[in-house]
Amino acid sequence: MNVDMLFRIAGIGILVAVITQLLKQSGRDEMATIAAITGLVIGLLMMVDIIGDLFESVRQVFQLY
């Protein structure tokens, strides 16, 4: 059970929130959107990694095909 993965994704969320706020304040709305999408994609990549881990261990433990 690794807590650092959780902290990492939560940190990404807070960082993306700060960056989008800053970019919106300085009038670059399209850059803010791009930053939000980038944060989302990074989170998705981490998620896919962990989902692969879960499926592997479920397949081993429950002998699913």
């Binding site: 993965m5 994704i9 939560a10 969320g13 989008t20 939000a36 989302l40 989170g43 998620m47 989902i51």
Partner: peptide, 14 residues
């Protein structure tokens, strides 16, 4: 950011 909050909860559940 509610969208990243969902990802955080998915990763915690995983």
């Amino acid at each position: 950011r509610p969208d990243i909050a969902l990802q955080v909860s998915i990763i915690a559940g995983l």
